[in-house]
Design a protein around this nucleic acid. Structure first.
Length: 193
DNA sequence: AGGACGATTAACT
DNA sequence: GTTAATCGTCCTG
């Protein structure tokens, strides 16, 4: 029996960011290419960035041109450029006007692995085990910023993954906190399987 | 107009 | 463990 793969609804993202982050483990990120091929992976590591009071969040100094998508509708993408060469993919959470998002840090590739390897010559396990590796493997760049992940005709979206399995997350401090002060530096807002 | 820096990665020693 | 790569964005003046 065939089932249609549907995007998770906007109501999924319209919830506390820590909840969305935790429940996103085991879900599947799917990208439908123009030629019909599918690139997909199970989400195995994410991080939560929550509001202007979170001094690790890009919105810590209020709204700017760059971080404006964080203030947009839940269920949209926040894609930003960093280190002069890398793209990062987040999905916006909570409610419009409140800047919060979940950063995708690692996937376990499930579909389209050979196409990902065309984009980056690596063994499958090293294809999507970092936030900038995910975007490179899937071909995500600025053109996907503010993309609506909940549209019925979306080409990029989250969908069901491991099904009945209830993932038990490992929690640690977020990666790359650099100059971020305590307590934010140590908050266990990185979730992984 | 200029400078510092970054939610990283790969390629070193 | 260390470091170069590489540039958009934000802040200062």
């Amino acid at each position: 029996m065939k089932s249609i793969t549907l995007p998770l609804p906007r109501s999924y993202f319209t919830r506390p960011t820590l909840t969305v982050a935790r429940e996103s483990l085991g879900k599947r990120l799917l990208k439908l290419e123009a030629d019909g091929t599918r690139l997909a992976g199970i989400i195995v590591e994410v991080e939560a960035y929550v509001g202007e009071t979170d001094l690790a969040c890009h919105a810590r100094a209020g709204m700017t041109t760059r971080n404006a998508p964080l203030y947009g509708p839940p269920g949209t993408a926040y894609v930003y450029f960093t280190y002069g060469m890398h793209w990062m993919l987040n999905f916006v959470t909570e409610h419009e006007g409140f800047p919060a998002a979940v950063l995708l840090r690692a996937l376990q590739p499930t579909e389209g692995v050979s196409l990902m390897q065309t984009r980056r010559k690596r063994p499958p396990t090293e294809l999507t085990n970092g936030p900038a590796k995910i975007t490179h493997a899937l071909g995500i760049n600025r053109s996907w910023n503010e993309y609506d992940l909940c549209g019925s005709d979306a080409r990029l979206f989250l969908t069901d993954g491991l099904g009945s399995i209830e993932p038990i997350p490992t929690r640690r401090p977020r990666v790359g906190m650099g100059k971020t002060p305590e307590p934010w530096r140590s908050l266990p807002w990185n979730f992984s399987l």
